[in-house]
């Protein structure tokens, strides 16, 4: 793939203060993450809730201050910009928020909602009615919808309005936070097809945050798996799915429920709970739950290796189809 990064994130950290009054402390929601997104590419962030996906997305969009690292968008450092200077950047990089109905003001009509970006950015000389019509057509909604209010929309329609708002100012990058959460499968397909059509037609780059792995498999060019605010594995989606090298990725993929009642599951079960960000485990942070963990993992944090476009943070990357050692024994006994 030709490398033409539109977004470059380097060693970004986001910390949150916790406690107070003599017990001040901080946790790292995002603990040093680097990635690039190329023009026209779809990049997926996967991980369980609390792994820092949304915080990372908010940091990229400037909604969350970062405590270390740098973010470069269209060859401009944007992490140090003040809100006023950030405003023109947001024309080029738009965000779709998680809750489709909640992110739309209940007192504005669909027409007002989709043209609000023009008003916010003081773009004049355009007929807003025409723009509303153009945007609604682009996202596949009837133009008569411009007088409806959000409560009169279904979940899928509200999502389309969210998409229309996101593409209103011809951005180069869309960050979509759980664009299909709460939608049933047929509507989910519609929204993803729409985003993909727009990506192709408008040459958009996209960052998609989701925990639906089936969706990631179909729509993302590259995928990064997050755990406790770090990337444990990142690479071409096909390769990550067919041969996960990090034990956490392998466990996530093996846990994915399939719509087939007769499917026999060969699951990798993870012992123990997700550790608290206040007490990050020493060494490799996944060792407390890793079925393959060895003594080295408990004190020596793995470096990120980059091989063949794959980034992995593990001392003992898995061979394709590897099974956890204990589970193998239990089968034998």
């Amino acid at each position: 793939m030709s490398s033409d990064p539109i977004l470059k994130v380097e060693d970004v950290q986001v910390s949150f203060p916790v406690g107070g009054f003599g017990r001040r402390n901080s946790i790292l929601g995002v603990a040093g993450v680097s990635f690039e997104v190329n023009r026209g590419e779809t990049f997926a962030l996967v991980g369980e809730s609390g792994s820092g996906k949304t915080t990372l997305a908010r940091a990229v969009n400037g909604l969350q201050e970062i405590s270390a690292g740098s973010i470069t968008f269209e060859d401009q450092r944007i992490d140090e910009l003040d809100p006023r200077a950030m405003k023109p950047v947001r024309k080029r990089m738009s965000m779709m928020f998680q809750d489709p109905v909640g992110s739309l003001s209940p007192r504005m009509t669909v027409g007002d909602l989709v043209t609000e970006p023009f008003r916010i950015h003081g773009i004049e000389g355009r007929n807003l009615r025409d723009e509303a019509e153009r945007l609604l057509t682009l996202v596949g909604l009837p133009t008569s919808f411009d007088s409806r209010f959000p409560h009169q929309l279904s979940g899928g329609q509200a999502r389309r309005v969210g998409v229309a708002r996101a593409i209103a100012l011809d951005p180069a990058l869309i960050i979509a936070d759980e664009p299909t959460a709460g939608l049933d499968v047929s509507v989910q397909g519609e929204v993803l097809n729409l985003l993909n059509d727009l990506r192709e037609r408008l040459g958009l780059a996209m960052v998609i945050i989701t925990h639906n792995l089936h969706v990631v498999h179909h729509v993302a060019d590259r995928t990064a798996v997050m755990y406790l605010g770090r990337f444990v594995e990142a690479g071409e989606t096909e390769e990550v799915f067919s041969a996960p090298q990090h034990p956490y990725t392998a466990a996530l993929l093996s846990a994915n429920p399939e719509p087939d009642p007769d499917k026999t599951h060969d699951r990798i079960t993870l012992p123990a709970e997700v550790p608290s960000l206040l007490a990050r485990p020493s060494g490799c942070e996944f060792h407390t739950r890793c079925p393959w963990a060895q003594s080295q993992c408990s004190f020596d944090a793995p470096e990120r290796h980059v091989t063949d476009e794959r980034v992995i943070a593990c001392h003992f990357p898995l061979a394709p189809g590897a099974r956890p050692p204990e589970q193998k024994e239990s089968v034998l006994s």
């Binding site: 049933d184 499968v185 047929s186 509507v187 989910q188 397909g189 519609e190 993803l192 097809n193 993909n196 639906n212 089936h214 969706v215 498999h217 179909h218 729509v219 989606t237 096909e238 994915n256 429920p257 399939e258 719509p259």
Partner: peptide
């Protein structure tokens, strides 16, 4: 039948265009 077909988990081949109703 259509609902089951729409599930991306049923598409073993990677596709950019998911089925819908």
């Amino acid at each position: 039948a259509r609902l089951l077909e729409c599930d991306p988990a049923r598409q073993s081949e990677r596709t950019r265009h998911l089925p819908t109703i």
